[in-house]
Design a protein around this nucleic acid. Structure first.
Lengths: 112, 112
DNA sequence: AACTTAAGAAACCTTTTGGTATTACGTCCT
DNA sequence: AGGACGTAATACCAAAAGGTTTCTTAAGTT
């Protein structure tokens, strides 16, 4: 069984509030990148990008691994699950079909 | 056919970044509320709550209808669709099963 | 008409945010 | 060893965010 740590989503929601940070996440889907590589995609200093990466790390949306003199930034999409779960509190209001669907699926997936 | 206005999600993400505003949305699931009624649920002044409601309105997450001297705040969950869509850019990374599922469903739902 | 209540508006304050520039440190390369 | 490179750390700044208080206006109530 997987111990699934329940974390409060505040830092994740906060991290997603900035468009630069959302773009960084989209970038990291393709591959892990160093700070300088991420910064190469934006019109701001490395220091500014590094701050954004820090916020993303606090929001558990990326992990950072030192590799030589570089820091490799890696996407951690699991944190988005918390956002998805929160949004799903409203599913019934904006698409009843989706709600019905996911409960039907859940039955198939959790036979125990 | 429904003309589906494509809006940029920045104001919506920004609105969701504050915990008080997320709580207000949860409140409004149950029923529409006036500003004073919303404020009754929080430990801050009405003026502060009104500011939060303004941000939620800018994020298209609520609509406000004058009714006598009151302003009725109504949940507009459609804006959450934009968030859900954005998060789904990462679906394949955190749960391949869900992705497979939703495409299977899409086929059933869009027979044309 | 007088009173109460709901909300709007503006001024103000403090903290956070998003950015800069500068300096220092560790790593890689020759 | 020396230089170039990637990052860390700090100080600094302007603007935005989140809150308060005060005043005004409009709508109900008695």
């Amino acid at each position: 069984m997987q111990t699934h740590q329940t974390i409060n989503p505040q830092s994740t929601f906060r991290a997603l509030a900035d468009p630069t940070r959302r773009d960084i996440l989209l970038l990291l889907r393709a591959k892990d990148l160093s700070i300088a590589e991420v910064a190469g995609n934006f019109d701001m200093t490395r220091a500014a990008v590094k701050k954004h990466l820090r916020v993303l790390e606090e929001g558990r949306l990326i992990s950072v691994t030192p590799q030589g003199r570089e820091r490799i930034n890696h996407l951690e999409p699991a944190a988005l699950k918390a956002v998805s779960d929160w949004v799903s509190f409203f599913d019934e209001f904006w698409d009843a079909r989706l709600t019905a669907l996911s409960s039907a699926i859940a039955k198939d997936w959790n036979p125990e």
